[in-house]
Design a protein around this nucleic acid. Sequence first.
DNA 1: CCTTGACCTCAAGTTGGCTTGAAGTGGCAG
DNA 2: CTGCCACTTCAAGCCAACTTGAGGTCAAGG
Lengths: 144, 144
Amino acid sequence: MNLLDIGEVARRSGVPPSTLRYYEEIGLISSYGRRGLRRQFDVDVLLKLSLIDLGKSAGFSLTAIAGMFGRDGQLAIPRADLHAKADALQRQMVDLRILRDALRHVADCPTASHLECPSFRKLVKAASRGRVAAGRRREATDEG
Amino acid sequence: MNLLDIGEVARRSGVPPSTLRYYEEIGLISSYGRRGLRRQFDVDVLLKLSLIDLGKSAGFSLTAIAGMFGRDGQLAIPRADLHAKADALQRQMVDLRILRDALRHVADCPTASHLECPSFRKLVKAASRGRVAAGRRREATDEG
DNA sequence: CCTTGACCTCAAGTTGGCTTGAAGTGGCAG
DNA sequence: CTGCCACTTCAAGCCAACTTGAGGTCAAGG
């Protein structure tokens, strides 16, 4: 078992020691004893940290991420959840595209007040109709 | 000027009154006087709220969003900035796509332990290389 | 042996984005 | 005129995810 002490993990991963200690405290990662005072981590922690970073950027909370690693530290996520998250990312991409298009429109549209430009309003309204409908769907399934 | 009172705005937009007051406090939206005690908002605030929601879902902070509206409440951003922002959104979309594909892989890959699945490791490493590089670029430009 | 510096613990502070609670007010229906 | 209710203010609280600070410890190098 190839061990690294916390400073080395921090250096290699870019995650500050304070954060590593915090992650250990909440059970997201674990250390293998100490050398003197210093926590020792298995090199595998680096991959786990990448996963954590990835998960965070996908919008998972740390608690949710912790839940994705089984007792044994393996990844254990129900397939349905993964697909659901992938779908959510898909929707987020759609939002981004709308926003990007709206921005490009604003950049290129000669109308003085964008809030009054018909095609801009159309873009934004189309977007908000989508989100309101999605919200309603979520509520409905939450209640049911 | 078609005015709505706060309760009506809340009903129509789905944004709670407390949040509307909060948004006004931080200068994100503004009201046009009162009727009795009640804030009156121009109907246009609904469009603005859609924009705000859109911006939030694209990962902008409220402060950043506020910065996108000029002093006069109009969208007032230099064209170059708008295009830069649109490009940033484009990059963010690419990241999301990578992540989405990684999630779908995990959902469909039959390997018992994803941490040991070579193609998973490859995906995660590729993704993290991308993010670390992006981080370095950000730091570099921040410093410069 | 003594200093140095990277670590340690624990508590408290910070930021963002709100929500909640207590106490007060304005206008309209009965 | 009374009462109600939707609003008002202001302060405080809350959650996540950390960071910061004070004061302590250990092992290695000079």
